[in-house]
Amino acid sequence: MKKTVAISAFLALAAFAAAPEVQAKDWKTVTIGLEGDYEPWNLTKPDGTLGGFEIELANDLCARMKVECKYIAQDWDGMIAGLNAGKFDVIMDAMSITPEREQQIAFSRPYAQTPAGFAGLKSSDLAKMDGTGTMVSLTGDAAHDKATVEILRKALKGKTIGIQTATVYTDFVKNNFGDIATITEYKTAPEHDLDVTANRIDVAFDDDTYFTSAFAKPGNDQMVLVGPQIGGSIWGKGIGPGFRKDDADLRDKFDKAIADAIADGTVKKLSLKWFKLDVTPAATP
């Protein structure tokens, strides 16, 4: 018996020694997936090229890492599936880092932290909604958030709320207002803007940086933020790039490049250019 065990152990060690060493991928080209339709984070220009905060930030990060950046447009609701299927290597699409998403993919440190809120028409009764023009912080803990949520529920009872599907905001809207309001989901954010301006829904809920850009578009000049801006840990650790879990080496490259871009002020410079406010994360995780 001892001899059999010894022989088995020897064979196992020999097989291990003979196995080829797994080499880290030589990242010369990195393909980044994004919508190309979530301005000002990322957008498609009239000539078909991509632009926006995340495109310019990604170009900067790739230059620091000495890799070539390529981009591919992908519908939001298939973003994580596309990454894990190998369609692209990184997601950079205003994606909030949440525990639920961390079960499916890996994240580096965040490159932005932003509040979210409701937008409606200037002429609506919600334009004077309690808390408009203020900032509140929610944690996702029902006891902590109850007072603020109850004020919002009172104002939104019987209303129709638009939300882009499969975002970090979708469950927040459904869970807190689904029993007192009608929730309408949209494939893209601009679609809920169209329904707000056409009076088909009362409000839309989205990232405030998105609305800042959306309000400047033709046809959206009657839209305005209503109610408080909502920030805090309820939206996760911040917004950052997502990776396949087995691409830890690529994640580490981005982690360092983002840290350097934050430290030298590049993230602040680009965020002021595209958002007119500084979305640099308050602290690294």
Rank of each mutant, 00 (worst) to 15 (best):
L121G: 03
A119F: 15
K122E: 13
D202G: 05
T209A: 14
R101M: 09
T132N: 10
Y186H: 10
D145E: 10
A143M: 13
V173A: 12
D207V: 12
G117F: 01
N199D: 07
G219N: 10
G162L: 03
L121F: 03
T212P: 02
G140L: 13
T160I: 06
L83I: 07
T212G: 10
K159V: 03
K159Y: 04
N176H: 08
R101C: 04
E185T: 13
K159N: 05
H192E: 13
D93E: 11
N84P: 08
M223V: 07
T212Q: 10
D195Q: 06
V90N: 09
K122G: 07
T165S: 08
T197F: 00
V224Y: 08
T170I: 06
E100I: 06
Y210A: 11
M223C: 06
D195F: 00
L121M: 07
I180D: 06
T134V: 05
A142K: 14
D206N: 07
L121T: 02
Q164N: 09
A147S: 10
A198F: 01
T160W: 00
T139M: 10
M95E: 07
K157S: 13
A155Y: 03
D207F: 10
M135Y: 15
A155H: 05
F88D: 08
M95S: 14
L156C: 10
A189W: 00
R200D: 00
G178W: 08
K187L: 11
K122N: 05
E185H: 01
V136A: 13
L83Q: 07
I161Y: 02
G120Y: 04
G131H: 09
A166V: 12
D195W: 00
N84C: 12
G82W: 07
T188Y: 15
I97F: 03
D179T: 14
G86S: 10
G120K: 03
S108N: 07
D141T: 11
D141K: 12
T139Q: 12
A106D: 13
S137P: 01
I183E: 00
G140M: 09
A106H: 08
I163K: 00
K87I: 14
D195S: 06
